[in-house]
Design a binder for these strands. Structure first.
Lengths: 158, 158
DNA sequence: CTTGGAATGTCAACAAGGCTGACGTATTAT
DNA sequence: ATAATACGTCAGCCTTGTTGACATTCCAAG
């Protein structure tokens, strides 16, 4: 609120985001490609894993894509037995989503390679840098997405 | 090198990258869409602006896409008069790239909206957080991309 | 000096994964 | 009853990645 970053700092931050995001997605992308999946499948697996039993609508809000786009991805994951879809008990219009054993296995594998890189970066940068990293990223989110982020952060689990 | 981030920290970092990147690209994306361009056009404009007279090959190394993919984007920008391509004097196989006045104008506009968000995030997070943000992102890059990043950082200019 | 290989860039065609629009079907809410 | 909600699906479009084939240019070995 009180500081005045230089144009040079801003440019470096922008370029760092671009290059770092490439590294961030690279390792999972390789595994996904071997299995005939893409980044969209990874995102679906990740957030279903994070909120087991979530509905399609909730997933749409988090992912920020159209239902047609999400549906294409979910259909593939369900057909391949990685995701299970059950009609809601209370509201039968809703479909609730869970990972199967196979789905959890793939999600774990993807998470492992992605975490490995982040872990290395965090360890080498140190805890204070990590705190700053986290703060800046949160400030960069849209408010609505920041809400989703906080909700996920408050969830129980590892 | 010495710390041991928790699985929870890693998960939060991963999700923060995902949500923050959405915010990061959102404002330029809107302008680009109005003009019938996409993110790829933004990247080309940005890095041509950063290294005026650069060759297609150099751009390929930075962007990490195939030359066919880049070529489609460059062709559109050249046809629309935003980028100028000149055959190399020394090596006539090479094409050297510059932004035209119109190209620089669009790049400035895109940079302005993107910088505005980063500036706000930086200002509200404070300079120490920004330093940590930068450190972690650099550690997340692939070595080759980190080299490109450093080279760009050392360039003269605003 | 010629010729073959490497480097550079272009064109064509295809796939993933976004998008909009329209429609069908349960189910729930008013 | 009627309207709204949640979800699925079909059709078609766009951007942006991919591979394959090809033309041009440069350079170095013979």
């Amino acid at each position: 609120m009180t500081d005045d970053p230089s144009a040079r700092d801003l440019r470096r931050g922008i370029e760092a985001m671009f290059f770092a995001y490439r590294g961030f997605t690279q390792d999972p992308d390789r595994i996904l490609h071997e299995r005939g999946y893409g980044r969209a499948h990874h995102r679906a697996l990740h957030f279903v894993d994070r909120s087991p039993g979530t509905t399609v609508n909730n997933l749409l809000a988090i992912l920020g894509v159209t239902k047609q786009s999400l549906n294409r991805v979910l259909r593939a994951l369900i057909e391949d037995g990685l995701v299970e879809s059950r009609v809601g008990e209370k509201d039968k219009r809703e479909r609730h989503l869970w990972l199967t054993g196979d789905g959890r296995a793939l999600q774990l594998e993807l998470n492992e390679v992605q975490s490995a890189r982040v872990r290395a970066a965090f360890a080498s940068a140190g805890p204070e840098a990590v705190a700053g990293f986290q703060t800046v990223l949160e400030q960069m989110m849209d408010e609505e997405l920041h809400d989703h982020f906080r909700r996920l952060s408050d969830l129980p689990g590892a």
